[in-house]
Simulated assay, not measured.
Amino acid sequence: MPQMAPMSWLFLFTMFSSALILFSIINYFFTIYQPFSSSYKENSLPQISLNWKW
Rank of each mutant, 00 (worst) to 15 (best):
M1I: 06
M4D: 02
M4C: 06
M4V: 06
M4W: 08
M4T: 03
A5P: 00
A5S: 12
P6D: 03
P6A: 02
M7F: 09
M7K: 09
S8G: 03
S8E: 13
S8K: 14
S8V: 14
W9C: 02
W9H: 14
W9V: 01
W9Q: 03
L10I: 07
L10R: 07
L10V: 01
L10W: 01
F11E: 09
F11V: 13
F11H: 08
F11N: 07
F11P: 00
F11S: 12
L12R: 05
L12P: 00
L12N: 02
F13D: 02
F13W: 08
F13H: 04
T14S: 11
T14N: 06
M15C: 09
M15L: 15
M15D: 03
F16Y: 12
F16G: 00
F16R: 05
F16P: 01
F16K: 06
S17Y: 11
S18N: 08
S18D: 04
A19W: 03
A19P: 01
L20M: 08
L20Q: 07
L20V: 07
L20I: 10
L22V: 09
F23R: 12
F23N: 13
F23G: 13
F23T: 13
F23H: 12
S24G: 11
S24M: 09
S24W: 06
I25H: 12
I25K: 12
I25W: 14
I26T: 07
I26Q: 02
I26A: 07
N27G: 04
N27W: 06
N27R: 14
Y28V: 07
F29Q: 07
F29M: 04
F29V: 01
F29H: 09
F29R: 13
T31K: 15
T31Y: 10
T31G: 02
T31A: 04
Y33I: 14
Y33Q: 10
Q34V: 06
P35V: 00
P35I: 01
P35T: 08
F36D: 08
F36P: 02
S37Y: 12
S37K: 12
S37L: 15
S37E: 10
S37Q: 11
S38H: 15
S39H: 08
S39M: 05
Y40V: 04
Y40Q: 15
K41N: 13
E42H: 11
S44Y: 13
S44W: 14
S44T: 15
L45A: 10
P46T: 12
Q47D: 11
Q47V: 14
I48V: 15
I48Q: 07
I48A: 05
I48N: 06
S49H: 12
S49N: 13
L50S: 06
L50N: 12
N51D: 06
N51A: 09
N51T: 13
W52C: 09
W52Y: 14
K53T: 12
K53A: 10
W54N: 11
W54L: 08
W54I: 04
W54F: 08
